[in-house]
């Protein structure tokens, strides 16, 4: 008994990608295994750790809790899509580097997605806003401190304040 394959077309980081997937293929597995976009990581596959966070139609969601087939016709942004097309780091990515907002790097893509969504919605977040926005993303290296600093720094830079 072979599984039914479903044809999907998804705009991933601005480019339409098509594929054939089984219904049970999670979005994160499709991104990683089929599109080789391995920047999005798997941590728990039950929606707690946030490592697999991506943006779906601009909103951060867990890609382990969405089947790829559900995203047919939608827009997905992964960490690879945060970098400028010419390869330059975004202000947020650069701020993470500046404050040492990462160590092993494993939770980082999900953190960046959550933080970018925050800054898109709220360019001047308080520390509480920042902690709330990343509270669905677990990190075991940093104790979150330098991540919070990175996001605050990025907010300052985006709004043109002296960092």
């Amino acid at each position: 008994m072979s599984e039914t394959l479903y044809r999907i077309a998804v705009t991933v980081n601005g480019v339409e990608r098509t594929g054939q997937v089984t219904a049970r293929t999670s979005l994160v597995d499709w991104l990683r295994e089929h599109l080789h976009l391995t920047g999005t990581h798997i941590g728990c596959e039950h929606g707690i750790c946030g490592a697999c966070s991506i943006m779906l139609d601009g909103a951060p969601v867990r890609s382990c809790l969405i089947y790829a087939v559900q995203t047919d016709g939608h827009r997905v942004t992964t960490v690879e899509g945060l970098t400028h097309p010419d390869g330059r780091l975004s202000i947020l990515q650069d701020s993470f580097c500046e404050t040492h907002g990462l160590q092993c790097g494993y939770c980082t893509p999900g953190m960046l997605i959550a933080a970018q969504a925050l800054l898109d919605a709220n360019p001047r977040p308080s520390e509480d806003d920042i902690r709330e926005a990343i509270s669905g993303n677990l990190c075991r290296c940093t104790g979150y401190q330098q991540i919070v600093e990175a996001i605050a720094l990025a907010a300052k830079r985006i709004s043109g304040e002296p960092a």
Partner: peptide, 9 residues
Amino acid sequence: VGHAQIRNR
């Protein structure tokens, strides 16, 4: 309810 990523979906 959960976190932002959960409520978004």
